[in-house]
Design a protein around this nucleic acid. Structure first.
Length: 411
RNA sequence: GCCAGGGUGGGGUAGUCUGGACAUCCUAGGGGACUGUGGAUCCCUCGACCCGGGUUCGAAUCCCGGCUCUGGCCCCA
């Protein structure tokens, strides 16, 4: 027997229906906000990802050398490919550009709850807009999309300027380490580290940033900064949208490429891997040879959304089993064809089973059975049986089609 | 890369501590009783000790290594 590769999953039909159902909701939400789908290759040149993030992350990627000797990688995320595509062929598209994607990504990491080696991201990029209103639109869309899926989550919004302001006097490595500790909320270690490096005075301000829950508190800590008005405007836009969020100026991840507003969403019922969405403003295009356009985007951890939602039933169109006696094979085929032509899901026996067995099987996989034999063939009718109630009637094909359609989706 | 706990037919399990004959039970799958009316019932059938090594007369059981799953750490672009 073959085992599935580590960190990958198989999806049976019930699970796929749930996944497609949620995916469709996200798609529909993106569409309503004016975003259109794009698709990039599943693999790219390795350098596309190391350019920004350094060589160190190679160990967490699926890299390979192709037959031409090129260093390639299965995409570990989609923002860089989308921006690469933008630089390659998006120059003459009217700005701002609103794109979304739904794609599988690959990371060579240790699997655990909500973390897989092949995982799906649903993401959105707003390219070329640089305003508080652009930031707010993307956050509001993120919120709407997650709400639309029905998960229970908390949206946190922050900005990198306050913490960068506080750390402006520190050497780069020290600042990076501080950000790391701050992001993880390891306050005792942070205090210790600041004392070691001779900046104990920064502790209260940094801790304050992670705890302050209003702009007023924020400005009391950092005083006046240039980005203050921007932050204020993003918040008031979010209030206008009616977005339910809380402030967190301790969000520090991705310092190397996020430039301003940052936001994250956390699901309530997941384990250690409870972040279901992350995003912010960034500048990437210039790295790939384009102009230095600001962009804002986010990615939803689709699999984590699915874990958070648990099991649920998706409405499904009813299925019909057409059971024909051997002597009227052609008539049965015509009935099946007619129903399929009307958009109905039809199955027929492929195992040469008896009528009794066929019905027995039909009861497990279909909602209705249609039985046709000499009798029905001669009168140009069908025997239409409701497999829930057992009730059965003689109908014309058109009447049977109408019956199935009238009962609609089943829950 | 680190820690903890698991791995027995497709799914769920008993047996493992205390080694012993054909490995338990439920469920799902296939067939039949039943060649124009099913889900019940009965019968038949298919099908497993994660892999490799060691100890032993004998290993699902004990020991070692590996793989893998679950949860946590690390990381999270």
């Amino acid at each position: 027997m073959f085992q599935r590769p580590r960190g990958t999953r198989d999806f049976l039909p019930d699970e796929m229906e749930r996944r497609r159902w949620i995916e469709a909701r996200m798609r529909e939400c993106a569409r309503r906000w004016g975003y259109r789908e794009v698709c990039t290759p599943a693999f790219e040149e390795l350098e596309l990802f190391t350019l920004r993030s350094g060589e160190a992350i190679i160990q967490e990627m699926y890299t390979f050398r192709d037959k031409g000797g090129r260093e390639m990688v299965l995409r570990p995320e989609v923002t860089a490919p989308v921006l690469r595509m933008f630089v390659n062929e998006g120059r003459n598209i009217p700005k701002p550009i609103r794109w979304f994607y739904f794609a599988d990504c690959f990371r060579y990491e240790r699997p655990q709850k909500g973390r897989y080696r092949q995982f799906w991201q649903f993401g959105v990029e707003l390219i070329g807009a640089d305003s508080p209103r652009a930031d707010a639109e993307v956050i509001a869309l993120a919120e709407a999309m997650l709400r639309g899926c029905g998960i229970d989550f908390e949206m946190q919004v922050g900005h990198l300027a306050p913490v960068k302001h506080l750390l402006s006097g520190l050497p780069k490595e020290v600042a990076a380490r501080v950000m790391q500790l701050l992001d993880k909320r390891e306050f005792p270690a942070l205090r210790e580290y600041l004392e070691e490096t001779g900046h104990p005075d920064l502790y209260d301000g940094l801790q304050g940033l992670t705890e302050c829950r209003s702009l007023q508190e924020l400005f009391e800590i950092i005083g006046h900064i240039e980005e203050g008005e921007w932050i204020q405007r993003v918040c008031s836009e979010l209030d206008t949208y009616g977005v339910d969020y809380c402030l967190n100026f301790g969000i520090a991840r991705g310092l190397d490429y996020y430039t301003g507003t940052v936001f994250e969403a956390f699901a309530q019922n997941l384990g250690a891997e409870n972040q279901v969405l992350g995003g912010g403003t960034y500048r990437l295009a210039h790295l790939f040879g384009g102009e230095d356009l600001p962009s804002c985007g986010f990615a939803i951890g689709f699999d984590r959304v699915m874990v958070s939602l648990g099991e649920f039933r998706v409405p499904r169109k009813p299925a019909v089993a057409v059971i024909g006696m051997p002597e009227v094979e052609e008539y049965a085929a015509a009935v099946a064809k007619g129903m399929r032509g009307a958009g109905i899901s039809v199955v027929r026996d492929t195992m040469e089973r008896s009528v009794g067995s066929q019905l027995s099987h039909a009861a497990k996989i279909a909602e209705y059975a249609i039985i046709v034999g000499r009798k029905e063939c001669e009168t140009n009718t069908v025997t239409f049986k409701n497999l829930f109630s057992g009730e059965q009637r003689t109908l014309t094909l058109q009447e049977a089609i109408g019956e199935v359609a009238a009962h609609g989706d089943r829950a």
